[in-house]
Amino acid sequence: MDKWIALVKQKLRELGLSQEQLAERVGVTQGGVGHWLRGTRTPKIDMMNKVLVALGMPHLQVTLQIAPVTTIAERSAQYGPTGAEAEDDIASQYLLCFQYPVLAWAELDGPRPATSIVTEQTDYCAQGLAFWLRIEGDLMSATTGPSVPENMLILVDPGVPAAPGKLVIARQQGTAAMFRQLVEDGGQRYLRPLNPTYPKLLCGHDLEILGVVVRSHGVH
């Protein structure tokens, strides 16, 4: 809930909107919005998503997950002392997750689809229109150091500034989008595979960074 509140407050500031204007957009009272943003009341999950859409973030979808805490000791650590009745129940906590589309590499060379059937969730709150990609090939797989092997999913955030050392999705004129590490050497920038058996590519003036990789995980 704290992440959702912080995100909504941030977007209100960016858009120059008041709580009253947000309330009008989602069809509730200003007092109701005030309670949400103070954390004194929790809106239903469909209303949380409605607020995100009203603030221009339809790519963010919030879900609630139940995370069971199965022992009395764990419950006490999470929630403090519990009574006998509470000890008979399975404690749970609410987690906020964001869902982003899983795109095919070919979709990066054209307009982004309006909707995606396949999504993957994470607790990462993107700064841009983030998306997942599945790794193909072994160019970013290494025996030592950082490695992103084939079939892993990577989360790409176009809102994160690219800087040397970052893993990025990029393309140059006449080339398809590629996954590489942006590096700098002798005043020149290169796109470097993590697999040392492949050569690095000199960045041209037409280099386009599609996003910075901010998460990765294996296949379920």
Rank of each mutant, 00 (worst) to 15 (best):
E24I: 03
A91L: 10
V28T: 00
M57D: 07
P58V: 03
A54M: 08
K50G: 01
P101F: 01
G27R: 00
I66P: 14
E24V: 04
W105C: 02
N49E: 00
A106G: 11
V33E: 02
A54Q: 10
A104C: 08
G110H: 09
T42G: 15
S76W: 12
A23R: 01
V102R: 12
A104D: 14
K44T: 06
A104F: 06
P43Q: 07
D88Q: 15
N49F: 03
F98G: 11
A54C: 12
Q93P: 03
N49I: 02
V69A: 09
G32W: 07
L108M: 01
E87V: 07
M57L: 14
G34S: 14
F98V: 09
D88A: 14
L52G: 05
P81R: 10
G34T: 08
G34H: 13
I90W: 05
W36Q: 02
R75H: 13
R25N: 01
M48Y: 05
M57P: 04
L60I: 15
E74L: 09
V62C: 09
T63C: 06
R25A: 02
Q65R: 11
D89S: 10
L64M: 12
K44M: 06
M48D: 06
A73T: 08
A23T: 01
G110T: 07
M57I: 09
Y79E: 12
P58M: 05
P43G: 07
I90R: 05
R75F: 10
M57N: 05
P58S: 07
P68Q: 01
S92C: 11
A67C: 08
D46M: 04
T42S: 15
H59Q: 09
A67P: 04
G31C: 06
R41F: 05
H59A: 14
G110A: 12
Q61P: 04
A23D: 00
P43E: 03
F98T: 14
Q93G: 10
A54Y: 13
D88W: 14
Y94T: 11
L55H: 06
L22C: 03
V102C: 07
I72H: 14
A91I: 11
H35D: 07
I72C: 09
L64E: 09
A84P: 15
G27Q: 00
M48K: 11
E87Y: 05
V26W: 03
I66E: 15
T29I: 03
V69W: 12
V51N: 04
L60N: 09
S92D: 13
Q65V: 13
E87H: 04
N49S: 00
L22T: 01
D89K: 12
F98D: 05
T70G: 06
R41C: 05
P68Y: 00
I45S: 00
M47V: 05
Q99C: 11
V26T: 02
A91V: 07
A106Q: 13
D109F: 13
A106N: 10
A77W: 09
I66K: 12
L52M: 14
Q30L: 01
R41E: 06
G56T: 03
G83M: 06
R25M: 07
M47Q: 08
R41Q: 08
D88P: 05
P81S: 08
Y94M: 15
N49M: 01
R38M: 12
L60K: 13
F98I: 09
Y79K: 13
V62K: 07
P101R: 07
V53T: 04
C97K: 12
P81V: 07
G27Y: 02
V51F: 10
G83C: 06
R38Q: 14
A23M: 00
P101Q: 03
